[in-house]
């Protein structure tokens, strides 16, 4: 039962990955904390571990066929993630789990705010819609 639940959780998060073009960690970390009763640090480390293989590759190919990919911008972002991630994780490991959990909450509130603002129609979009 437990195994099936964890696999299903991955499947549900995967749909979000393809739908939103994200890695999935932002949903996986709280899911592991609350559904699997994991410690915040452990959930974050596990989230990074399971994202090592290119799990979004299938989703990427679908975007690629529709020419919805800026390859060079993606490469720049990958470099930034690689080095930025090193320093971010150094900071996280020194924090206590409770503060890290609260900070994670603030982080996803910021992400949610950005998503919300982005979802207003852009100027060009309005014209083409009319």
């Amino acid at each position: 039962m437990w195994y099936a639940g964890v696999v299903l959780m991955g499947l549900a998060v995967g749909v979000l990955v393809g739908l939103m073009g994200i890695g999935g960690g932002v949903v996986l970390v709280p899911a592991m904390v609350y559904l699997l009763a994991m410690d915040q640090h452990m959930a974050q480390g596990t989230s990074l571990f399971l994202q090592l293989p290119p799990l979004g590759l299938g989703a990427l190919l679908v975007y690629w066929r529709k020419k919805n990919v800026d390859l060079w911008a993606g490469v720049m972002c990958a470099l930034g993630f690689l080095f930025g991630g090193y320093f971010g994780s150094k900071i996280a490991i020194q924090m206590n789990s409770r503060d890290l959990q609260g900070a994670f909450g603030i982080f996803i509130l910021v992400a949610a705010t950005l998503l919300w603002f982005k979802s207003r129609p852009e100027p060009g979009e309005k014209k083409s819609g009319a």
């Binding site: 939103m20 073009g21 994200i22 890695g23 999935g24 960690g25 932002v26 996986l28 970390v29 959930a43 974050q44 480390g45 596990t46 989230s47 990074l48 994202q51 972002c77 930034g80 993630f81 690689l82 080095f83 930025g84 991630g85 090193y86 320093f87 971010g88 994780s89 150094k90 900071i91 996280a92 900070a103 994670f104 982080f107 996803i108 992400a111 998503l115």
Partner: peptide, 13 residues
């Protein structure tokens, strides 16, 4: 990337 490493996420969000 700093935020991604800090919070164990991919960064796409």
């Amino acid at each position: 990337g700093v935020a991604a490493g800090l919070f164990g996420v991919g960064g796409g969000v």
